[in-house]
């Protein structure tokens, strides 16, 4: 028999794991919206989502008492969740023939203008 406490930790970890993926999606969506609209609020929400994702990940690892390989995996996941959506955003711009630097200088305005332009075409 396993102590009830153990299964509560496992169930808690499962829940946190699910929420973690949701925050990953939140981070990705807000990041993309920030890029589209140039809204600072969106950028903030994106960072906040990622912060909460990290909290979930820490809780997840603590509840499961992860170590070694599994801890490294969590680290990699944190990097992956951070980097991959950003890369996909840049890729979206690049594939559609928009040079990615447009977005870096005063994010948003250029992009918004760009959107206008593409609507008129």
């Amino acid at each position: 028999m396993v102590e009830p406490e153990v299964i509560h930790r496992v169930a808690g970890a499962a829940l946190l794991g699910g929420v973690m993926v949701l925050f990953g999606a939140g981070y990705a969506i807000f990041h993309a919206l920030a890029g589209l609209t140039g809204s600072r609020g969106m950028a903030g929400a994106s960072i906040l989502s990622y912060g909460l994702l990290c909290c979930c990940a820490v809780g997840f690892a603590a509840l499961l008492q992860l170590a070694d390989w599994w801890l490294a995996l969590m680290g990699l996941l944190l990097i992956g969740y951070f980097v991959v959506p950003r890369f996909i955003w840049k890729l979206s711009l690049a594939v559609h023939g928009e040079s990615s630097h447009i977005n870096n200088e005063t994010p948003g305005q250029a992009t918004a203008k760009d959107m206008e332009a593409s609507r008129h075409e």
Binding site: I29, A32, L36, I88
Partner: peptide
């Protein structure tokens, strides 16, 4: 991770 990443592209497309 790919599923999350693809969300970015969907948002991009929908916005554009």
């Amino acid at each position: 991770v790919p599923l999350v990443a693809m969300v970015v592209h969907a948002v991009y497309d929908a916005g554009r």
